[in-house]
Design a protein around this nucleic acid. Sequence first.
DNA 1: TATGAATGAGTCTTCATTCAT
DNA 2: CATGAATGAAGACTCATTCAT
Lengths: 189, 189, 189, 189
Amino acid sequence: MNKTKKLIFDAAVKCFSKKGFHKSTMDEIAETAGVAKGTLYYHFKSKEDIFKFVIDEGMTVIVNEINDKTAKLDNPVDKVAAVCEVQFQMTIKYIEFFRTVLSQMWGDEERQLQLREALKKYFEVIEINLKEAIDKGLIEKCNVEVIAFNIFGVITSTVLYNNTHEDVNFDELSDTVINFIMNGINQHY
Amino acid sequence: MNKTKKLIFDAAVKCFSKKGFHKSTMDEIAETAGVAKGTLYYHFKSKEDIFKFVIDEGMTVIVNEINDKTAKLDNPVDKVAAVCEVQFQMTIKYIEFFRTVLSQMWGDEERQLQLREALKKYFEVIEINLKEAIDKGLIEKCNVEVIAFNIFGVITSTVLYNNTHEDVNFDELSDTVINFIMNGINQHY
Amino acid sequence: MNKTKKLIFDAAVKCFSKKGFHKSTMDEIAETAGVAKGTLYYHFKSKEDIFKFVIDEGMTVIVNEINDKTAKLDNPVDKVAAVCEVQFQMTIKYIEFFRTVLSQMWGDEERQLQLREALKKYFEVIEINLKEAIDKGLIEKCNVEVIAFNIFGVITSTVLYNNTHEDVNFDELSDTVINFIMNGINQHY
Amino acid sequence: MNKTKKLIFDAAVKCFSKKGFHKSTMDEIAETAGVAKGTLYYHFKSKEDIFKFVIDEGMTVIVNEINDKTAKLDNPVDKVAAVCEVQFQMTIKYIEFFRTVLSQMWGDEERQLQLREALKKYFEVIEINLKEAIDKGLIEKCNVEVIAFNIFGVITSTVLYNNTHEDVNFDELSDTVINFIMNGINQHY
DNA sequence: TATGAATGAGTCTTCATTCAT
DNA sequence: CATGAATGAAGACTCATTCAT
């Protein structure tokens, strides 16, 4: 990703998260990026294309960061818990990105499918560990795909939903949802 | 709600759920409702106004239906479980309405606040029962607001996310998420 | 064709003939018609659609006018000559329309096909008479489709090509081309 | 014309003939030529300038080729017929070039004038022979400029118009139009 | 000579809203 | 109550042209 493309990427994340995909205009993205409108189209085919790039690129960064931070753990249950904690912190850190993700999660069918594709990478991290935990008899059998999806949903939506309050205690919030999740997969944590 | 307004309400739900708020046009809503475009403006101030009406009216119907169906239960934990089950069925029944709700949950700030206001009624049903369960020592102490919100999120998003698959086993899905939730609030169910 | 549509039709003919299809803008057409730009789109699907309407409607008017003015003639050769004369006068009368037609005759494939479809009506008038003349032994056998097309081409292009000169003697011009055509179909006229 | 300029010339002819002047983009011409877009501007002032060059250069090539192939004939009537035949073959050979010519013949005024200027060279070949034929009493008196123009028009437009059919019999077509033309100038051929 | 990233004016098109009937 | 023609502001996208390298 060269310099100009990076400028556009950052601007797009900012705009999409602030106003959603539809209300963000190419003019705004260009102005935010500090480039001419034509430049957007030199680097991207369309607004849709920028969105796709933002999601794909963003999810890759995030999945890598999660993998890095949970690499040293062996026990799959510990790993799921660690992923949750990291995901919680990541949502706070990249809150604009995740607002972009969730805002498009239930909109246009086409953009929805792109999103699911990009989220796969993330879900897989959790699914693998859930499966291993089940195989080792650490947690009860369950539909790992559904649970992985919900773990992501619970964490991100909780952070976003509560982010508007002025005096959020994110530590307590983190404990609450991770407790809910770990209990949910039948592991008093 | 007179006949014409009802036609518009149904049409709006259908359009909003199919294409989201922004991609739904007043022309489409009018055509779907079988009325002239001007008629929309006779009954509603604006497109925003139709959205607001749809959400408010829809949530009222749903909360009432939930209350009806869980009225006879006494035990607060049973009641939470029952609300979950009913909510699961309701999401299937009114799937277009809930897609509309979720599609706007993380978008435009103004519409987000309207949504939260409307959802309060639903959350309260769960919060009251969670509190009672905590008071009676049936479940552990927790942040009831956060949990109520997540119960709603887990159920609706699971139904919507899996609705695209062609051969969904909703019964298994229901067991999975309700199990996850009830475990989550520390009640092996 | 109601009043507004007629305004747009006239404006479109004027613009297309003056600057061609591509260089004519919807803004210009709207301004020339004295309506708002949105009004164009209330009555027509697209710029392309306006073009199609202009050609179809225009050719219908012209073919009708030609048929009216040549109705009373019986002899097919006389009729072809009469059609030529009328066509010559029509090209002068509706010169802007015919410039529009010729300007698009060799451009975009799609618009070209529309044009051919619309011109069929006109060609048929000539083809029928040529065939009859051949059948009656009045002129030699020839490929009537090719000749009909060329009769149209010779007349319209001659008028348009010479229209730029300031002091055109249209009567002499008319004699020249009609003589050329009638000789061409082997009828010293 | 050096190598790069020749690449651009060929690419421009191809593009202009396929999509017309307006729909052809500098990007396409550059890509077709296999050079960078900036290179077009190194060799030409503008898109208009490329068009002008294409027409001028093309017509020169064609007029030379016609002169070569009809040089040995003496009789002016034979020469006109020969020019027609050669022109027919040339239109088939350089069909894309002639589509470019005709597509701009009735459009933008400025480009129209350039075209007429370039066509003069061709018309003159015919005009000279027509005049000589008239002077020698071989054909009747006529407006040679109008006839020369129409001879060009009839031949090129017939080839182009019929080129879309899949199974064109160009020999029959050639006979038809040349017969039409030679009869037209009053010379049963 | 040649390149290709960057530009921004210009275009088509959409659509919520108004209003006379 | 209901209509639908008309509006115009706004937005996505195109593309000839420039210029630093």
